[in-house]
Amino acid sequence: MAEANQRLIVAISGASGAVYGITALRRLRELKIESHLVVSRAAALSLNAETDLTIGDLNALADQVHKVGDIGATIASGSFRTLGMLVAPCSIKTMSEITTGVTSNLISRAADVVLKERRRLVLMVRESPLHLGHLRTMTAVTEMGAIVAPPVPAFYTRPQSLQEMVDQSVARALDLFGLDAPMTRWNGLKGE
Rank of each mutant, 00 (worst) to 15 (best):
S128R: 09
D63I: 03
Q6T: 15
R109W: 01
V141E: 02
M124N: 09
L37I: 07
I71K: 06
L162D: 10
S46A: 15
T184E: 12
L45E: 11
A88Y: 00
K116G: 07
A146P: 02
E143H: 14
S40C: 09
E117A: 12
R27F: 15
S96F: 06
L123S: 03
A154T: 09
R27S: 07
L25A: 03
Q160V: 12
A42V: 10
A181S: 09
L115S: 02
A111Y: 04
G188V: 09
L135G: 04
A76G: 13
V141D: 00
Y20Q: 02
A42T: 11
I33Q: 01
P153V: 03
P150N: 06
L47F: 01
R158L: 10
A73V: 09
D63Q: 06
S79V: 11
T157P: 05
R118S: 09
Q163V: 13
M165R: 03
L162W: 13
R185N: 10
S104C: 12
V125E: 00
I33F: 06
G69T: 12
I75Q: 02
N5C: 15
A49P: 04
L37H: 01
A15K: 00
I71G: 03
D57G: 11
L132F: 13
N105F: 07
I92Y: 06
S16D: 04
F80E: 08
S35I: 02
L162C: 07
A110Y: 00
R119S: 06
E97C: 14
T157S: 11
G133Y: 13
V125L: 12
V102N: 12
L61N: 09
G72H: 14
I147S: 12
G69P: 07
A2I: 08
I22H: 00
L106M: 15
T82H: 00
G72C: 05
S13Q: 05
L130E: 04
D57R: 03
K190V: 13
A2W: 01
Y20D: 05
A42H: 07
H134V: 13
T82V: 01
L162N: 15
R119M: 05
S13T: 10
I92F: 07
G178N: 05
V65R: 09
L61H: 02
L86H: 03
A173Q: 04
L174Y: 00
R136P: 05
A11W: 03
A140H: 13
L28E: 03
Q160G: 15
R119N: 01
I22R: 01
R26M: 10
R29L: 11
V65E: 05
D180P: 05
V19Q: 06
V141S: 02
A2K: 10
A171T: 01
R26A: 13
E143Y: 06
